[in-house]
Nucleic acid binder design. Structure first.
Lengths: 225, 225
DNA sequence: CACAAATGCTACTCTAGAGTATAAACAAAG
DNA sequence: CTTTGTTTATACTCTAGAGTAGCATTTGTG
C-alpha cells in the first residue's frame, strides 16, 4: 500500500517535471537548507550577544555579506528566526533524553547517560539554549506554547525515570516530578553559566553535573557511584 | 570625634537653611524616594513581562498615571532604571547571606539558613532577579561589572562556608568554589521557574531548595537533616 | 493676594530598524 | 546569444519610541 502510494507520487512528480529537473531541484533544496542554517547560526550569535530586540537583521546580513531582503527571502520575519533558534536546544535535549531512555539499563545508569548527554548538548548549543531562556517572552503565543510542550514532555519523561528509580529503591526522591524540575533546571543553568575557554572545561562541568544530580537523588547512606 | 564632625555638618546645614526649611526638605526627600521606588516597581513589572527593550517608558508612565518626562525627572535614562532593578535582587541576597553567616552555628545550620532566606528573597523579588538574569547584557559595561562583583562576592562567601563545612567533615564537596556556583545556580533557577499561584507554593519550593542543597553537599552515608 | 519655586505636562525632534516594491544581475535552456 | 525565470540588491516607507524644550500648574511664602 505504502509503496504503491509512494510510487504514485513519484509518477505524478515525474509527469510534472523531467528527471533532470528533479535532480537539479533536489540540489537546490539542499542549498536552500544550507543557507537557512547559516542565517540561523549568525542570527543566534547576535541574539546571544545583544539580545533579540537589540539585534538588527541588517547586522546579521552584513555578517553574512548579504542584505536584509536576502534574509527575508528565507524567513518570513524576525520572529520565525527566533522560533527556530529557541526550538533547537530543547528539541536536541529531548531527543537525547529519549535515546538515553531507550538504552537498556538501571535507572541510575540511564540517569547518568541522560545527564551526560544533555549537559553536552547544552554546552555545544549554548547560544540556542541561552537565547531560549532569555527571549521566550518574545515568541508568539503559539510558538511559545509549542516549545513549552517540548519542555513539559522532557520534564515528564525525566520524572518517569526518577519514579522508576524510586520504585527499584535506587533513588530517594519524595516528589519525582518536582525533583525532575530541579534536575532540568540544574542542566539549563549550565547554559547561563558556562563560558567557553573559562575557568572550567566542558568536561569538568559535565562531570560536575552528573555528580550533583546523582547526589540529589541518592538515598541516604549510599556510596558514591 | 565623630560627634564633633557630625555637629559641624549640622551647623553648616543650619547656617545654610533655617530649621523649618530643613524639616520640609527632609519630608520632600522621603516623597522623592517614594516616587522613585514606585517608578521602579512598575518598570520592573513591565521589564519582567515584556523584556527591557520591548518596554516603553510611555507605558510605565501610563501605568502610574503620569507622563514620560515625569520619569525622566527622577531617573537619568532607561538604563539607570535597569541598573537599579538588576542590582536589587543581588544586593538583598548578598545581605541575607552575610546576615546568615553572622549567626552562630555549624556550617550545616548556617547553610540551611542561607538557602532558606535567599530562596525566600528570590521568590519575593522574582521580577528583579529574573530581569537581571535575562537583561544583564543590556547593562552598561561598568554597571554590569559592579553587579558581577556583587555576585562574585556572594559565590565566594558561599564557597567559604562550604569550605568550612568540608573541614569540619559536615560536607562532602570536592571543589567548594565550583559547588558554590551550582548552589547559587539552583537558587537563581527558582526565579525563572517559580510561578505565583502555580502548581507549588513558595514554602514548598523553599523547602525543596533546602533539601536539594543539603543533598548536594551531604557526605555519603549521612542521614537526612 | 501676589510672587516665587518647584513640579509636571504638551508637543515636539530625531534616530533606527522592520518590512517591502522594484530593479538589476545572473543562470540555465534553447 | 537571446529569452525566461530565479536570486539578490538598491532604495525606499512607515512606525515607534527615546529623549527634550518650553509651557502650565500647583504649592508654599511674605
Amino acid at each position: 500500500m505504502q509503496t504503491a502510494a509512494a510510487l504514485a507520487t513519484d509518477i505524478a512528480d515525474l509527469m510534472d517535471k523531467p528527471k533532470k529537473k528533479r535532480a537539479a531541484s533536489q540540489l537546490k533544496d539542499e542549498i536552500t537548507a544550507y543557507k537557512r542554517r547559516r542565517i540561523l547560526e549568525e542570527a543566534s550569535h547576535f541574539f546571544f550577544l545583544n539580545g533579540y530586540e537589540a539585534t538588527t537583521l541588517d547586522s546579521v546580513a552584513e555578517q553574512l555579506n548579504v542584505t536584509k531582503p536576502f534574509i527575508y527571502s528565507y524567513y518570513k520575519n524576525k520572529g520565525e528566526l527566533l522560533y527556530e533558534i529557541c526550538q533547537t536546544g530543547i528539541q536536541l535535549s529531548l531527543t537525547a533524553l529519549e535515546e538515553a531512555l531507550s538504552v537498556e539499563g538501571t535507572a541510575s545508569e540511564q540517569l547518568k547517560i541522560v545527564v551526560e548527554r544533555v549537559a553536552r548538548i547544552i554546552i555545544e548549543n549554548q547560544r540556542y539554549v541561552t537565547v531560549y531562556l532569555r527571549e521566550e517572552k518574545c515568541l508568539l503565543p503559539e510558538d511559545a506554547r509549542r516549545i513549552r510542550d517540548l519542555r513539559h514532555t522532557f520534564d515528564t519523561k525525566l520524572a518517569a525515570l526518577l519514579e522508576k528509580g524510586k520504585r527499584t529503591g535506587e533513588f530517594d526522591v519524595t516528589h519525582p516530578s518536582r525533583t525532575a524540575i530541579w534536575v532540568s533546571g540544574l542542566l539549563s543553568w549550565i547554559a547561563l553559566w558556562y563560558h567557553e575557554g573559562g575557568r572550567w572545561s566542558a568536561t569538568e562541568v559535565v562531570m560536575d553535573a552528573i555528580t550533583m544530580v546523582q547526589k540529589m537523588v541518592q538515598p541516604a547512606g549510599a556510596a558514591h557511584g
